[in-house]
Design a protein around this nucleic acid. Sequence first.
DNA 1: GGCGTACGATTACATTTGTAGTCAAAGGAT
DNA 2: ATCCTTTGACTACAAATGTAATCGTACGCC
Lengths: 122, 122
Amino acid sequence: MAERISDAEHAVMEVLWDHAPLDAQSIYDRLSGSQSWTLATVKTLLSRLVSKDALATEAQGRKFLYRPAIERTAYVAHESGRLVDRLFGGKLSPLVAQFAESEKLSPEDIAEIEALLQELKK
Amino acid sequence: MAERISDAEHAVMEVLWDHAPLDAQSIYDRLSGSQSWTLATVKTLLSRLVSKDALATEAQGRKFLYRPAIERTAYVAHESGRLVDRLFGGKLSPLVAQFAESEKLSPEDIAEIEALLQELKK
DNA sequence: GGCGTACGATTACATTTGTAGTCAAAGGAT
DNA sequence: ATCCTTTGACTACAAATGTAATCGTACGCC
């Protein structure tokens, strides 16, 4: 488990987290907006994700339907944990501070975070 | 600029952000605690970082002193921006929510974040 | 029922990364 | 003056990654 998903592979995962199950062609179609990969490339990524047990397949006639085998939440938790550990010693507040300083915090975002924290303290 | 620093390279950068300038041997020494790399490996990483313009060197006799050529803040901002963009659509609150759910938020951390936000609203 | 075609599988290949060995030269020790 | 050591430079090589072409084959169309 947890074989490490590369950047390119991640783009494929996102499509499937949003609209699984899909066959290769449809995944390719949906990626066309953001990436200029050929169908062959997308198929390579799909195979690799299947080997990594990040995707499961289900035969539909002579094609496959692909669907995520790991939860997006788990992936996201893992990845953000990793980054926060590496860059901020595992503490979230320095990340927030960093965002604050680089002006990447919208007022709505601030409000939402505050609401979250209120909820937690309760 | 911004040649993408790998995980292993990042470990080297951290040492230098903390104690620059240092020569290769001292960097190796300081890394010995956390990594089991040989001196040769550390030297390879140093060379690569120099090519990537992430480190600058200054000759000291027949050895080099290495020091960061990019600010840790800039690096950290870039990396965390990247992750937040990829995984949370550029918004920080979902990341905080994710941390909250996985119980990775200590009370102190919460307090610090709240303080930060108070500061911002002022 | 042969034929093109659309699939997944296999193969390809350059680049990056992790991890290190070797080499030539410069200095220091004797 | 000679030899050992230390240092950066160069070379090595496997695995992962990005990106794709090709191949064998099962299907559907005529």
